[in-house]
Structures are given as C-alpha cells and as structure tokens.
Design a protein around this nucleic acid. Structure first.
Lengths: 135, 135
DNA sequence: CAGAATCCTCAGAGATACTG
DNA sequence: CAGTATCTCTGAGGATTCTG
C-alpha cells in the first residue's frame, strides 16, 4: 500500500499520504455501506428489475434501494435501462467497472468464510475475558 | 458467493440467505468504517505505539483512535501489549487474524488503483449529464 | 411498477477538557 | 504517555405515504 516513509530520521513512523487514504475512501464510499455489496452481488449474473432486487434483498426499504442504486449509478457501477412497456420495466445491470468491483468484493467476502474458525475461537475467548473483568 | 437459488420455478430470482449476508456484515463491521483500514495498514510492518498511530493517521481524534482500537481488539484483529515502564508504553500489533485481513484489504485497495482511468472517465461523463439535466 | 417526498431517530463522529 | 469523560451535532437509514 502506498505509505510514505519519510527519509528523515526525526520522524520514525510512516504516515498515510493523501493518495493512499483517498484510495481507501474510494472503495469504502462504494462498498462500505450496508446495502451496496448485496446489490452488486445480486446483479452479478444477469440484469435485474427493481422489484426483483427488493425481493432478493431481505430487509431493504424502497428508499434505501433507490438511494443505493442511484449512488451506484453515479459511481459507474450499475447501468439502468428503461423499457417503455406496460407495465414499465427497469433493468439494472453491472457495468464493466461494476464487474471488476464484484470480483474484488467476492474476494473480500471470502475472508470471514476462510477464517470462520479463528473468528469464532477468538470470540469465545474475548467474551470470557469480558465477563471476567465485569465481575 | 453463497446465494441460494430456489429450485421452485415460481420464484425466478435468487435471494441472499442469512449466512451470506452475515459474511458481508462480518467484514464490513471490521473494515467498513472510516479508520479501521488505516489502522490495520499502519500496524502492518511492526508494532506501533498509540502516539505513533495518532501521528501516522492524520485527522484521527484520540477518541476515535481508542474506540477503533478497542473494536479491533474485540474482533481479534489487534493485540495490545503493555510495558510497565516509565514512561508507559503500549504497543499495538496485528494478530495472525489481523495479518490475514490485511492481505485481503490490500487486495481491496488495489481496485481504485487499477481502475483509476475508468473511474475518472465515468465521472466526467456523469458530471456532464448531471449539469445537462440540471439546466 | 418504480419510484419520490416527507418525517423521524439515534448511533457515530468530532471537539474539548480532564486523568492515572 | 495513553488514554477517559462529556457534549454536541450531523446524516445514514427506517417507516410511511403519495405519484407518473
């Protein structure tokens, strides 16, 4: 990662340059929220209608679905195509950029799957500690 | 990604099962916030003291640094070691779990770097559209 | 069907000041 | 040095209702 390490010996520690933090913000702005990843994952295979999205993602409100979709469209992740039919149909699909993002997100989602045991083991330990210090 | 696709033909669309959404929540809980990734990245190479972290991460308040560190400790990402010296010294380092998370986060951070051009190109397009519709 | 508008709330984030 | 303790305030997100 792009961390600048000043050559001067007076500053012993590296610090984040603004470019690196901007990269972090860039992805977190796109996939750091509650719904984006789920939407991106749902659009993975084929174009999806608004109501299908709402059905596929339990718990999302129409408001959040619309807002997140707009956000993803602005970010160039999602395409929205209108079909002037009756009843009206709007299909949402991933752009090329969105597809590339999907693959990194899949990588991300693999982490808790791969480390399931370590995560669970740690939790029992730290829960025990918490109850001990509380007493 | 673990998406269940019901075999019944009445439901055309896949929907997220709770295990899959839990995986998403799991990482987002850990790296979805503003500071966690920066802290994890700073701890990458060697143990770091509290004040070094504060210096390395511009703009973080003591409160957020403490809060995020505690959160990461609870999650088993970060170790905190106290050295009973004068002046007191506390070193924070990545656990094994934290190191594994770091590598997936580095992968994540590569995305905006790799797609820098596409992202920028799209932004000029959508900005132009925005100003056109606004008029 | 696919949303837009409106209202509400409450957790997260910052600033500031204090302490073992 | 390495944190707490308060206070405040913004804004993400939910519920509900209305519309092209």
């Amino acid at each position: 990662m792009a961390v600048s390490r000043p050559s001067s010996r007076t500053t012993a520690r590296a610090h984040w340059d603004s470019a690196a933090t901007n990269f972090i913000r860039e992805i977190l702005d796109r996939v750091g929220d509650k719904w984006s990843v789920l939407i991106i994952g749902t659009l993975a295979e084929c174009p999806v209608r608004y109501s299908e999205l709402a059905e596929a993602i339990p718990g999302i409100s129409p408001r959040m679905l619309t807002l997140t979709l707009k956000h993803l469209q602005r970010s160039g992740i999602v395409n929205r195509t209108a079909y002037p039919e009756v009843p009206p149909r709007f299909e949402h699909s991933l752009t090329d950029l969105g597809t590339s993002l999907l693959s990194t997100v899949l990588y991300l989602a693999a982490w808790p799957a791969d480390h399931h045991r370590e995560i669970r083991d740690h939790q029992s330990v730290s829960d025990a500690e918490a109850s001990r210090t509380k007493r």
